[in-house]
Write a protein that binds this DNA or RNA. Structure first.
Lengths: 331, 331
DNA sequence: CTGAAAGCGCTTACAG
DNA sequence: CTGAAAGCGCTTACAG
C-alpha cells in the first residue's frame, strides 16, 4: 500500500505537508499544494495507516466494549447504542464477547490495554472483577452495572433495587397472591438488588407468598427451570424475571405447558429490549435507558476525570399484556 | 505506561531481548536473562504496545466484521461464532455495526483498511457493494451472502434457492393451499433466491395459490405488515418468511389478531437462530450452519489465496410447532 | 507556507 | 546468547 512518503514524492512535497492535509492541521497548506497532495493521494489510493498515526500521535480514538454475550439482544442493543454514541464523538467502537468467561474477559481487557484504547465500557461476567491492572495502565473504565465503590472504575446503572420493587408491586396490585422471582444465576450485586427490591414489595403485602428460582441468563435455561416450576404444585400466579432474555424462556415454557399468559401465569421481564414488545404475548418489563446509558458512558470515558463517577439513570416500568393489562400503556 | 526500553533498562539488557522474551523468538534467550526480563516487566506492569508491534511487524492479527444490525440475534450469533473462530486462530475480531446504512458500511470498510486488518467478514446492506477499494488495499473479504462472481471478494453462503424451495415444499406437504412469502425489503440477490425457490415449489403444486409481501428485516416492521396481511380477506394459510427476525413479527401479529399458529396460520422462518426454538410457538426454520460459516470464513481470510472462493455450505430444515408438526424433529 | 528531522514503541536482520 | 541500529508510517515541534 502507498505510504505518505509515496504521496509526498508524487506531489513534490514533504510527508509533513501530506500529514497537514489529511489532518486539516496543525499547519496551514496553500490551496495549490493541498490540491497536488489530494490528487497524488487519490491516484495512489492512499490510506493513512491508523496504527502509525496512533503510535505517533499517542491516541487511538477508540473505545472498547466487552459484553458477556453479544447474541443476547439486550447486549446487542447496548452495543448498537454505544456504536452510535462513539461514532458521534469521533471514536471507533471495538466490541468483544467474553462468552460468559471470566478468563476471556481478562484477556480481552489485556488486549484492549495493548491496543491502547482510550477507554473501556464493561459489562462484566464477574460480580467483583479485577480491574486494578487496567486502572494502572491509565485506561478509564465504566461498568454498566452496579460496582463496588472501592473499584477503580466508574459505573452507570439504573436503580435495580427500586425497579424490582416497583415491578413486583405492580404484580401485587393486580391481586396476585403468589409471586415468584426468577433471578440470575449467581449471587451478584445485580441479583442481590433484584432480590432486595422484590422482597421489600412482598413483605409490604400481607398474605402474598413469595418463592424464588435461579437460571442462567438464557432463554434455554430459563425455559428449563420454568418448565419444572410451572408444572409443579407450587406454581406461582405471577413471576418477576430478572432479564427479558429469561422472561422469553418463561413465556415459552408456559405455552409448552398449555398455560395462558397472563390468565394462568403473569410475567414481568427486565431490560426493555426492543424484542419485549413483540413477544407472545407482549412482555411487561422494566425499560433500561439504553441510549442514555450509551451516550453518558462515552462522555464519561472521554472526559476521563480523575474521580470516578457512579450515576443512577432513570428507568421506566412498561406494562404490556404479559402482566395482565390488556392494552399497552402509552409510550 | 512502561515501554520495552524501561523493561530493558531495569533488566540490564536490550530492547531486542525484551522482544525475544515476549514473542518467544525469533532468537533464544538464556533462562537467567529471561527471568530478569519477566521480573522487570511484572514490576513495571509492562504491556507491549500492540500498535507499535503491528506497525513494526507488518501484521495486526485482527479480522474485521461488519453486520447491518448487531441487535439482530442472527448477526449476534454470527458475531459470537466468528469471535470464537478468530480467537482459535490467534486473531482478534473487531465488530462494527453499519446500522443498515450503505454510507456507514463504506466508512467502516475504510476504517478497517486504515487499521490494516488482515481480512474482513462482510454482511453487506447492499446487493452490490463497492469493494474495489478494499481489494486494491490488498485486504481479502469474505461475504456471508450471495455475491456477484465478478466481485473482488469471496463468499460463503447456503443455497438460499433450494432452502426456500424445500421449506415451501414442506408447507405444501402439510396440505396448505394458500401460501404466502414474506420477503426482505429490497431486490437483492438473497431475496431473489428466496423468491425463486418459493416460486418453483408453488409452480410444481397444482391448485396452490401464492402471494407475496415485503417488510424490513425487523420484528416491528414484519409485525406491521403481517397485521394487515393476516387481517385481510386473502390471508394465506401458511407463510414462508425470509428471516427468523421477520417470522417473530408474524407470530406476534397472529397472536394479536387472536389467530392460532399453526392451526389458523402456519409459519416457517429462516436462519435458525437459537431463539427460534423458544418462540411461541417454537419456530420451524431453515438452519444456517453458523459455526461452520464462521470457521470457514476465518480460514479463507487467513489463507488469503489469490483466487476468490465461492462456497455453498449445507443447511438443514428444522420442523417445529409453527409449521404444523406437534413434535420437534430430532436434533 | 514548507521541509528536515526526531520520535512514537516495537521487530528483526546483522554482527559479534 | 546478546546488542546496536535500522526501519515500520505516521505526527509535530523547530527552523526557515
Amino acid at each position: 500500500m502507498a505510504t505518505g512518503r509515496d504521496v509526498a514524492e508524487r506531489a513534490g512535497t514533504s510527508t509533513a505537508v501530506v500529514s497537514y492535509v489529511f489532518n486539516n492541521g496543525p499547519r496551514n497548506v496553500s490551496p495549490a499544494t493541498r490540491e497536488r497532495v489530494l490528487r497524488a493521494a487519490a491516484e495512489l489510493n492512499y490510506r493513512p495507516n491508523a496504527l502509525a498515526r496512533a503510535l505517533s500521535a499517542g491516541k487511538t480514538l477508540s473505545v472498547g466494549l466487552i459484553v458477556p454475550d453479544i447474541a443476547n439482544p439486550y447486549f446487542g442493543e447496548v452495543s448498537r447504542a454505544l456504536e452510535t454514541a462513539a461514532t458521534a464523538r469521533g471514536r471507533l467502537l471495538l466490541i468483544a464477547d467474553s462468552a460468559g468467561s471470566e478468563e476471556q474477559e481478562l484477556q480481552q481487557l489485556s488486549s484492549f490495554i495493548e491496543r491502547r484504547v482510550d477507554g473501556i465500557v464493561l459489562v462484566s461476567v464477574s460480580d467483583d472483577p479485577q480491574l486494578g491492572f487496567v486502572a494502572e495502565a491509565g485506561i478509564p473504565i465504566v461498568a454498566l452495572h452496579p460496582l463496588d465503590l472501592d473499584q477503580p472504575a466508574s459505573s452507570l446503572t439504573i436503580d435495580y433495587d427500586h425497579a424490582a420493587e416497583e415491578a413486583t408491586q405492580h404484580l401485587v396490585g393486580h391481586g396476585y397472591r403468589t409471586i415468584g422471582l426468577l433471578n440470575g444465576p449467581t449471587d451478584s450485586a445485580g441479583s442481590r438488588q433484584h432480590a432486595a427490591g422484590f422482597t421489600r414489595a412482598i413483605l409490604r403485602s400481607p398474605g402474598v407468598q413469595a418463592s424464588e428460582r435461579r437460571s442462567e441468563t438464557s432463554r434455554g435455561d430459563a425455559a428449563r427451570v420454568a418448565l419444572q416450576w410451572l408444572a409443579s404444585g407450587d406454581r406461582p400466579r405471577a413471576i418477576y424475571v430478572a432479564t427479558d432474555e429469561q422472561a422469553f424462556g418463561v413465556l415459552y415454557a408456559a405455552a409448552e405447558l398449555g398455560l395462558h399468559v397472563p390468565d394462568d401465569v403473569a410475567v414481568v421481564g427486565f431490560d426493555g429490549t426492543a424484542h419485549s414488545r413483540y413477544a407472545v404475548p407482549s412482555l411487561s418489563t422494566v425499560q433500561q435507558p439504553i441510549p442514555e446509558l450509551a451516550t453518558r458512558a462515552i462522555e464519561v470515558l472521554i472526559a476521563a476525570e480523575d474521580a470516578h463517577v457512579h450515576e443512577t439513570l432513570p428507568h421506566r416500568f412498561v406494562a404490556r399484556r404479559s402482566c395482565g393489562w390488556h392494552a399497552e400503556v402509552a409510550g
